[in-house]
Design a protein around this nucleic acid. Structure first.
Lengths: 124, 124
DNA sequence: ATGAGATATTCCTTGACGGGAATATGTCGC
DNA sequence: GCGACATATTCCCGTCAAGGAATATCTCAT
């Protein structure tokens, strides 16, 4: 339970192509802003802006090194996304079952169907 | 190796609050458009539009039932996101090690670090 | 202190996106 | 076929976010 309520901004941050590229690049290890810009063919200011968004979404973390700022992925946030996803996997059977029941119960036109809005079915 | 290359539109679709709410709702089971709109307090046209985006992102699948259209989550796409995330988890140690080496190597200003992206100092 | 390097921030413009309202499309019952 | 229901689509509008360019900020070396 609970595993959910993951904020939309987290996904929105990953939903921007340039930002997703940055994240994929950072998978290979921490990088300074200039290196990221150079590696991806982006301009430095845009990279800084994207990193800001990623940082606000809790996806990256900055570590000042000398006069450079090294960014790295924030493990915790990715773990949270993982938890969120795992909460789905346990539901696939339930979901299919519900659909089956809906279809089988002759719900051809009946406005009321066997799956009430808020379903308290706990999937242990 | 590249378990990745997950498309940004997939995340972008989840990055919209209303759409994320729809996804969370569909976790409880398949629903018809009108039911979704009613459950979330949204208007039917907007729900249809959001479902379209989610469908194009491969996150939901539609099943016509009578004159209603029942949407459900598409397991495959969520599994792909899961795979993408898992490819990160194996990198955490590597990442930390790289950062540690960078910091410990007295890289107070030395531009050399264990993961050379490209060696640029070129500035226009 | 001064200058250079590295990064962050601001201003601007433009294109995309979401919501509202109205309407088109499609499906069923009769 | 016709009308009622369910959903999809279109048009309009306001907002927001991303890229470009210029500049401010911060840190280090001398």
């Amino acid at each position: 339970m609970t595993a959910a309520a993951l904020a939309a901004p987290t996904f929105a941050a990953l939903g921007e192509p340039s930002r997703l590229r940055i994240v994929e690049l950072l998978r290979a290890g921490p990088r300074a802003v200039g290196d990221i810009a150079d590696a991806l063919g982006l301009r430095q200011p845009q990279v800084s802006k994207h990193l800001r968004v990623l940082g606000e979404a809790g996806l990256v973390r900055v570590e000042p090194v000398a006069r450079r700022r090294v960014y790295r992925l924030e493990q915790q946030r990715f773990a949270e996304i993982g938890d969120w996803l795992e909460s789905f996997e346990t539901l696939w059977e339930t979901r299919l079952d519900a659909l089956g029941a809906l279809l089988e119960s002759g719900a051809a036109d009946a406005p009321a169907h066997p799956v009430p809005p808020t379903r308290p079915t706990q999937e242990s």
